[in-house]
Simulated assay, not measured.
Amino acid sequence: MSIRTILTGEDEPVLHKACHPVTNFDQKLADLLDDMRETLTKAGGVGLAAPQVGILRRAVLVVNDQDQMLELVNPEILDQKGEQDGLEGCLSLPGKWGYVKRPEWVKVKAQDRTGTWFEVEGTGLTARCFCHELSHLDGHLYSELCDRLYTSDELDELMEAQETEE
């Protein structure tokens, strides 16, 4: 296993390309998923998509609300309900955050590293992560969905102002 470089910047071309389905469930895929796991763990994030490490394949990792790291290959959203509005960040846009509307509950169908299909669902942050990471597979960043991006300093000021109001 090795730590891969996470591509950064809204102008990074790979981050705006649609990914190809995974068709070979082999050692190369297992190595990619293992490397992504190690990369995500080191980065301290809650999700990582293959294009963020320069690989245009439909594979993502999501840390769910039970702190399990889920491997989702060829994932697709089957159903979604409700709505939540919250802050999102991204390992590919370090130091920036924005408010994004996402569903409160999401059900996903995906394959595991051996090609076996399964379904998984999540609420809250897990649902948000499913949507965020699957968007990467179609070449989209969360920044396309928010009115503006906040820097760390701006976010600190915003949080302070909200605490003062309460």
Rank of each mutant, 00 (worst) to 15 (best):
114 T>E: 15
51 P>M: 10
117 W>K: 03
35 D>V: 06
63 V>I: 11
75 P>Y: 09
57 R>V: 10
4 R>S: 07
96 K>H: 13
159 M>N: 12
8 T>A: 01
102 R>V: 00
56 L>P: 05
144 E>L: 15
34 D>E: 13
35 D>P: 11
17 K>W: 04
110 A>W: 02
21 P>L: 09
6 I>W: 11
83 E>W: 03
141 L>F: 09
143 S>A: 15
11 D>Y: 05
55 I>C: 04
15 L>N: 01
146 C>Q: 12
23 T>I: 10
13 P>K: 06
56 L>Y: 01
166 E>R: 15
124 G>I: 00
78 L>H: 06
50 A>K: 02
152 S>G: 11
148 R>W: 02
69 M>R: 07
40 L>I: 10
114 T>F: 14
133 E>Y: 11
152 S>E: 15
146 C>T: 13
113 R>H: 13
18 A>F: 02
162 Q>P: 04
10 E>D: 12
8 T>K: 13
140 H>N: 14
117 W>N: 10
33 L>Q: 03
116 T>V: 07
103 P>Q: 01
59 A>H: 07
106 V>D: 08
153 D>L: 14
61 L>R: 02
71 E>C: 03
28 K>M: 07
77 I>H: 01
152 S>Q: 15
53 V>Q: 06
122 G>N: 04
128 R>K: 14
34 D>Q: 11
53 V>H: 04
146 C>G: 10
118 F>R: 07
50 A>N: 02
7 L>A: 03
144 E>P: 13
96 K>R: 15
135 S>T: 01
131 C>M: 12
116 T>N: 15
147 D>S: 14
47 G>N: 10
54 G>H: 01
10 E>H: 03
83 E>L: 02
126 T>Y: 10
115 G>T: 03
49 A>V: 01
80 Q>P: 02
28 K>V: 13
153 D>F: 09
69 M>P: 04
103 P>D: 00
159 M>S: 00
135 S>Y: 13
128 R>C: 03
108 V>D: 02
67 D>Y: 08
15 L>E: 06
138 D>L: 06
131 C>N: 00
23 T>Q: 13
27 Q>G: 11
66 Q>E: 11
119 E>F: 09
63 V>E: 00
49 A>C: 00
132 H>Y: 05
109 K>R: 15
155 L>F: 07
83 E>Y: 11
107 K>T: 08
128 R>A: 11
3 I>S: 11
155 L>C: 07
9 G>I: 00
18 A>W: 09
12 E>T: 14
90 C>A: 10
153 D>P: 05
164 T>D: 13
96 K>C: 06
146 C>F: 05
161 A>K: 15
137 L>G: 12
19 C>S: 14
114 T>L: 15
107 K>F: 00
104 E>K: 09
109 K>D: 05
65 D>N: 08
71 E>H: 09
67 D>E: 01
162 Q>I: 01
149 L>G: 04
2 S>T: 05
20 H>W: 02
105 W>C: 04
87 L>A: 03
13 P>L: 12
120 V>I: 12
155 L>N: 12
73 V>C: 11
97 W>Y: 15
101 K>G: 06
136 H>V: 11
68 Q>W: 05
87 L>S: 10
61 L>D: 06
65 D>T: 08
1 M>Y: 04
78 L>D: 06
66 Q>A: 09
74 N>G: 03
164 T>Q: 14
119 E>Y: 08
33 L>F: 07
16 H>W: 05
136 H>P: 14
120 V>K: 01
22 V>A: 01
24 N>V: 04
62 V>R: 07
31 D>L: 13
24 N>D: 13
